[in-house]
Computed example of a mutant assay.
Amino acid sequence: MKPQEEINFNRIAEAINYIQANFKRQPNLEEIAEKVNLSPFHFQRLFSEWAGTTPKRFLQYISIGYAKELLKENQSLFATALETGLSGTGRLHDLFVNIEGMTPGEYKNGGENLHINYSFAESPFGNILVASTPKGICHIAFYEVESKALADLMHKFPSAQYQQILDKEQQNALYIFSHDWSKLHQIKLHLKGTDFQLKVWEALLKIPMGKLATYGNIAKQLQNPNASRAVGTAIGDNPVAFLIPCHRVIQSSGALGGYHWGVNRKTAIIGWEAAKANPIIP
């Protein structure tokens, strides 16, 4: 690491430690920047380059992580807001909707008012579980054991209402294995994630069938060239297998890298898509 890079790295590490130690006071940009002897503008840019997100967003991630733990302990929304350093339940509500895509009450209730349809299906790469809400597809996963796959889905929203039924949203998603990939826009998605995760998943959807990208490529597209590791984490959290094509991302060395549903399956999917995109004409 070059001397200036090491200095920058140490400054960002110090800033992260400061945020983690003082998040209950909700320090502003100016306070954190002053702590590492940088102007707010320079600090904002440097932090975003190294951490893959803004200082404010990082503070929000720390805050919501703590708030989740309090809600799991059955703390009231008001007490949770105050303990997290927020001025009231309104700010707690905004934080959850912005980061989690649900209200703190919905999170606390485990998705109590959420209706999820699910079904089991076969694909060229193994059995899959596909689930949807009235807003769109929320979950696709390859599985070996049906009961475990369903338990993993229900763990995300333990109080949601589940019904085993193949609805139109799921049918549209399953058509992707046999129909034109260019019709992907007809499939609606209902995703829950941070702004950064959503941007990464959106970038994955833009990788054409039969093509590959690297973690570094995705980071550059998001104008965060140093965020390859953060990109990899977001890709690993992809809730919709195959449809959001995280299998099309490989390491810069050419190695396939990891895959949540197995490297052998990733290899098979890449080969299958390459053959579909570039058919051999006799």
Results as ranks from 00 to 15, higher is better:
residue 185 H to Q: 15
residue 250 I to A: 04
residue 235 I to L: 04
residue 121 A to G: 01
residue 55 P to F: 08
residue 197 Q to D: 15
residue 98 N to S: 13
residue 86 L to I: 07
residue 193 G to L: 08
residue 278 N to Q: 05
residue 110 G to M: 11
residue 41 F to P: 04
residue 79 A to E: 15
residue 225 P to W: 13
residue 271 G to P: 02
residue 99 I to L: 07
residue 190 H to G: 02
residue 65 G to S: 10
residue 183 K to Q: 13
residue 246 C to G: 14
residue 116 I to W: 10
residue 48 S to H: 04
residue 188 K to I: 03
residue 271 G to K: 13
residue 258 G to S: 10
residue 200 V to Y: 00
residue 65 G to D: 13
residue 139 H to C: 05
residue 150 L to N: 06
residue 211 K to I: 01
residue 227 A to M: 02
residue 190 H to N: 15
residue 24 K to C: 03
residue 125 F to V: 10
residue 252 S to C: 09
residue 13 A to I: 11
residue 171 Q to M: 14
residue 37 N to S: 14
residue 48 S to M: 05
residue 270 I to R: 02
residue 5 E to I: 11
residue 253 S to G: 13
residue 239 P to S: 04
residue 263 V to D: 07
residue 276 K to M: 12
residue 32 I to E: 12
residue 254 G to E: 07
residue 117 N to V: 05
residue 6 E to Y: 12
residue 107 Y to M: 07
residue 259 Y to T: 03
residue 20 Q to N: 14
residue 135 K to T: 06
residue 90 G to H: 09
residue 94 D to W: 08
residue 206 K to E: 12
residue 249 V to L: 06
residue 36 V to Q: 07
residue 24 K to S: 03
residue 17 N to A: 09
residue 268 A to T: 11
residue 261 W to S: 05
residue 231 V to N: 00
residue 183 K to V: 04
residue 128 I to A: 00
residue 157 F to G: 00
residue 264 N to W: 06
residue 219 A to W: 02
residue 90 G to M: 09
residue 133 T to L: 08
residue 205 L to A: 03
residue 64 I to D: 12
residue 257 G to D: 14
residue 130 V to I: 15
residue 92 L to Q: 04
residue 61 Y to H: 13
residue 117 N to H: 11
residue 2 K to W: 12
residue 213 A to W: 06
residue 162 Y to K: 01
residue 275 A to F: 07
residue 184 L to N: 01
residue 244 I to L: 13
residue 187 I to V: 15
residue 143 Y to H: 08
residue 278 N to T: 02
residue 204 L to S: 03
residue 265 R to P: 02
residue 275 A to T: 08
residue 123 S to A: 05
residue 234 A to Y: 05
residue 69 E to W: 06
residue 218 I to E: 00
residue 186 Q to M: 10
residue 8 N to H: 14
residue 24 K to V: 05
residue 100 E to D: 13
residue 248 R to W: 07
residue 266 K to D: 07
residue 78 F to I: 11
residue 144 E to A: 09
residue 20 Q to G: 03
residue 98 N to V: 02
residue 176 I to F: 14
residue 142 F to H: 04
residue 237 D to G: 14
residue 264 N to P: 02
residue 118 Y to C: 01
residue 191 L to Q: 13
residue 218 I to M: 00
residue 165 I to H: 09
residue 241 A to T: 03
residue 212 L to Q: 11
